[in-house]
Amino acid sequence: MANTCFYLCGCVNQASIGVVEKWGRFAKLAEPGFHFFNPFAGECLAGVLSTRISSLEVRIETKTKDNVFVQLVCSIQYRVVKQNADDAFYELQNPREQIQSYVFDVVRAIVPRMTLDELFEQKGEVAKAVLEELEKVMGAYGYSIENILMVDIIPDTAVRKAMNEINAAQRLQLASVYKGEAEKILQVKKAEADAEAKYLGGVGVARQRQAITDGLRENILNFSHKVEGATAKEVMDLIMVTQYFDTIKDLGNSSRNTTVFIPHGPGHIRDISEQIRNGMMEASSSNI
């Protein structure tokens, strides 16, 4: 009578590793693929572990050095090492809780030594410290820590509100400084423009008076050459009288004027003549 053997078969999927036992003891690791197991020899597929990268999000609430309560959100990426899959299968009952406990321990030991501002600036250092501790501990259990990301740092609501108010106040203060500087520049430029305008206005008035003086001098000289016996004073008086009546005529023809009081008399004409003559003499003396 021939011996009859019974075999059981099993399949290990890709990105997985199988754990094979013989009579309840670990025998070997089964690579992805199809496998035969002899139940009469006590072989069986005890379990399958995934070798893909898994992600675990951990939320830790702790206190900083300046007594600010914060909540940190860490993302831990880990995987089973194929060569040590038996350790990962037999040593830890719940690897996720184990990882979470070590993250809590490391973070709550480092963060209280930092202020809130230092925590925001050095969150990479916190993640690095957690990574080093987890690699050292979890490596003995057949797990590899691929990366740790400090996803978020959430201060207490009252603290965030106070920080926003401080930031807003600083920005308003900076805006006030810039506004004051801008107003100062505008006032300086306005004063410079006003001074330049007054200077140019004075130059224009001086040139206007010089042109009037030159024109009167030319008219007096022409009239004196054409009319024999006429003195410069007589010509000046004649021009002044003519200009005086032309001015009165222009004032009367203007539609915008209603009533204009003008002192009139021979004495006033003589005063105007003397003023113009004195102006001509001063202009001539300034050109010398």
Score class of each variant (00 low, 15 high):
residue 192 E to Y: 05
residue 123 K to M: 02
residue 183 E to M: 04
residue 119 L to S: 07
residue 134 L to Y: 00
residue 280 M to H: 06
residue 98 Q to F: 11
residue 97 E to V: 02
residue 61 E to I: 12
residue 262 I to W: 10
residue 241 V to N: 08
residue 235 V to M: 15
residue 252 G to D: 10
residue 33 G to K: 01
residue 183 E to I: 06
residue 251 L to F: 08
residue 13 N to G: 13
residue 225 H to N: 12
residue 126 V to R: 11
residue 178 Y to E: 07
residue 25 R to P: 08
residue 10 G to I: 01
residue 175 A to M: 01
residue 60 I to S: 05
residue 219 N to G: 07
residue 3 N to C: 09
residue 14 Q to Y: 06
residue 173 Q to D: 11
residue 264 H to Y: 13
residue 202 G to R: 15
residue 148 I to Y: 02
residue 202 G to N: 11
residue 65 K to F: 12
residue 287 N to L: 11
residue 8 L to G: 14
residue 88 A to E: 07
residue 36 F to V: 07
residue 111 V to R: 02
residue 96 R to K: 15
residue 129 A to M: 07
residue 240 M to Y: 09
residue 25 R to E: 15
residue 196 E to Q: 13
residue 271 D to V: 10
residue 73 V to E: 08
residue 50 S to Y: 00
residue 246 D to Y: 07
residue 275 Q to S: 15
residue 82 K to D: 09
residue 52 R to C: 08
residue 67 N to I: 08
residue 116 L to N: 02
residue 9 C to M: 02
residue 161 K to P: 00
residue 272 I to E: 13
residue 144 S to V: 08
residue 137 V to M: 05
residue 161 K to L: 05
residue 284 S to W: 10
residue 166 I to H: 00
residue 13 N to K: 09
residue 259 T to I: 14
residue 159 V to E: 13
residue 282 E to V: 03
residue 11 C to W: 04
residue 64 T to I: 03
residue 129 A to L: 10
residue 232 A to S: 11
residue 174 L to G: 03
residue 158 A to V: 00
residue 260 V to Y: 08
residue 134 L to P: 03
residue 39 P to K: 07
residue 30 A to T: 04
residue 87 D to C: 12
residue 97 E to C: 14
residue 176 S to Q: 12
residue 65 K to V: 09
residue 218 E to V: 01
residue 200 L to G: 02
residue 222 N to F: 05
residue 205 V to P: 00
residue 282 E to L: 06
residue 74 C to V: 02
residue 62 T to V: 12
residue 219 N to F: 03
residue 127 A to I: 04
residue 229 G to E: 09
residue 267 G to D: 13
residue 213 T to C: 12
residue 120 F to L: 01
residue 142 G to R: 01
residue 180 G to Y: 08
residue 157 T to P: 03
residue 262 I to V: 15
residue 278 N to C: 10
residue 11 C to N: 09
residue 12 V to Q: 00
residue 121 E to D: 14
residue 65 K to T: 03
residue 92 L to M: 13
residue 57 E to K: 07
residue 125 E to D: 15
residue 161 K to A: 11
residue 270 R to L: 13
residue 233 K to P: 01
residue 98 Q to D: 12
residue 227 V to M: 14
residue 176 S to T: 09
residue 101 S to F: 12
residue 65 K to D: 09
